[in-house]
Amino acid sequence: MQIFVKTLTGKTITLEVEPSDTIENVKAKIQDKEGIPPDQQRLIFAGKQLEDGRTLSDYNIQKESTLHLVLR
């Protein structure tokens, strides 16, 4: 499924993921596309910060959901 990741600069990254993918996994995909190390990434969905060990389905993230990427 496709999800979108919006950065603070207003750029939107499109990722191909599975509901069973972990947040860690998603961060690795963002690193592949954008070169941002996962340890600098914070992903936010519905106002919650997403934890590395959880999966997209844990957070009920469905196709075409938009996550927000904050760098630390």
Score class of each variant (00 low, 15 high):
K63A: 04
I36W: 13
L8R: 04
Q62D: 08
T7F: 14
A46D: 15
V17Y: 06
S20Y: 14
F4A: 06
I13G: 01
E34A: 13
A46S: 10
P19E: 05
T9M: 07
N60W: 07
I3V: 14
E24T: 09
A28Q: 12
L8P: 11
L15Q: 01
Q49T: 11
D32R: 10
K27F: 13
V70Q: 15
N25P: 01
I44C: 03
E51D: 09
L50K: 00
S20H: 08
K29Y: 05
K11T: 09
V5H: 00
T14N: 06
Y59F: 10
T55E: 06
Q40S: 06
S65H: 12
S65G: 10
D32K: 13
V17Q: 04
L67K: 01
K11C: 03
D32A: 12
G10M: 05
K48Y: 07
E34C: 02
N25S: 04
V70N: 05
S65I: 04
D39F: 13
G10C: 03
L71E: 14
I3H: 00
S65M: 10
V70W: 04
L8C: 02
T14K: 04
T9L: 14
Q31D: 04
K48E: 12
Q2Y: 11
I44Y: 13
L50E: 00
L15K: 00
S65N: 14
I13H: 14
T14C: 02
E51F: 04
T12D: 15
R42G: 15
P37A: 14
D21W: 04
Q49I: 08
A28H: 14
K6M: 12
G53Y: 12
T7I: 13
Q40K: 03
K27Q: 11
T66I: 09
E18V: 03
L69N: 01
Q49D: 14
N25H: 06
I13T: 04
K48C: 02
E16L: 07
I36Q: 08
G47V: 03
L43T: 01
G53E: 12
G35I: 07
G47A: 15
V26I: 12
P38M: 11
I36V: 07
I30Q: 00
N60F: 11
T12S: 10
T7N: 12
T66V: 11
F4I: 07
K27D: 00
M1G: 06
P19D: 08
D58K: 13
L67W: 02
Q41Y: 12
N25C: 02
G35D: 04
D32T: 10
I3C: 01
P37Q: 15
T55I: 14
K33Q: 05
V5N: 00
I36N: 07
G47S: 10
Q40M: 09
Q62K: 07
I30M: 04
Q41D: 02
R54T: 10
E24Y: 08
R72G: 14
K29V: 01
T14D: 10
Q31L: 05
E34F: 10
M1S: 09
V17C: 02
P37T: 15
F45P: 00
Q31H: 12
A46L: 06
E64V: 06
D58P: 01
K6T: 13
P38G: 06
T55S: 07
G35S: 05
L15R: 00
F45C: 02
L69M: 12
R72Y: 13
D39C: 02
G10V: 10
Q41I: 05
I23R: 01
D58F: 04
E64I: 05
T12Q: 09
G10Q: 07
F4Q: 06
P37M: 12
A46G: 11
V17G: 15
V17P: 01
I3D: 00
G10R: 02
Q40T: 06
P38C: 02
T22Q: 10
L15G: 00
G47C: 03
K11V: 06
T55N: 05
Q41L: 11
N60A: 09
L67T: 05
K48M: 09
L69C: 02
T66L: 12
I23E: 01
L43M: 07
L43K: 00
I44N: 15
R72E: 15
Q62G: 04
R72V: 15
E34K: 03
R72Q: 14
L43S: 00
N25W: 05
K29S: 10
T12M: 12
Q2C: 02
T22R: 08
K63Q: 14
L50P: 01
I3K: 00
E64D: 11
S57E: 15
Q31M: 08
G35N: 05
E34Q: 03
S65F: 05
K6Q: 11
G47Q: 14
A46W: 09
V26D: 00
T7M: 08
T55K: 08
R54N: 13
G10L: 09
K11M: 13
G53D: 07
Q40P: 03
T12A: 14
E18T: 13
S57Q: 13
K11E: 13
L50F: 02
I3S: 00
D52C: 02
L8D: 15
R54K: 02
L69R: 01
D21I: 08
T55A: 06
T14M: 14
K63C: 02
I44V: 06
L67E: 01
L15F: 09
Q62L: 11
G35Y: 08
K6Y: 11
E18D: 12
E18Q: 12
G35V: 04
Q49L: 10
S57M: 06
L43F: 05
Y59E: 07
N60I: 07
L71W: 13
E34I: 05
E64W: 05
D58Y: 13
E34S: 10
E51M: 03
E24R: 07
Q49W: 05
E16R: 06
L43W: 02
P38F: 15
E64L: 04
F45A: 03
V26G: 00
I23Y: 04
Q2E: 11
Q41K: 03
L43R: 00
I36H: 04
T14G: 03
L50Y: 01
V26F: 06
E18Y: 12
T66Y: 08
K29D: 15
T9C: 03
F45Y: 11
A28I: 12
T7S: 13
M1K: 10
R42M: 13
D32F: 10
G53V: 08
L50H: 00
I61D: 00
S65P: 06
I44W: 12
T12N: 10
K6S: 06
E64C: 02
L43D: 00
A28E: 05
Q31N: 08
Q49E: 15
K33E: 09
T66G: 06
K63G: 13
L15A: 03
F4K: 04
G53S: 09
E16F: 07
Q49K: 06
F45W: 11
S65T: 06
I3E: 00
Q2R: 08
L67G: 02
V26N: 00
M1N: 06
L50A: 03
Q2L: 06
E24I: 05
L56D: 00
M1E: 05
T55Q: 11
Q31Y: 12
L56G: 00
R54E: 03
F4L: 12
E34G: 02
I36G: 08
K27N: 04
P19C: 02
K63D: 14
H68Y: 15
K29L: 06
A46M: 13
L50C: 02
M1L: 14
I30G: 01
L50I: 06
D32P: 11
P37E: 15
A46C: 03
G53H: 13
Q2G: 05
L43Q: 00
F45M: 12
R54H: 11
A28T: 15
D58C: 02
I3R: 00
Y59D: 02
V5T: 03
G10N: 14
D58A: 05
E24Q: 05
R54L: 07
K48V: 14
T14E: 08
P37C: 03
E51T: 05
L50Q: 00
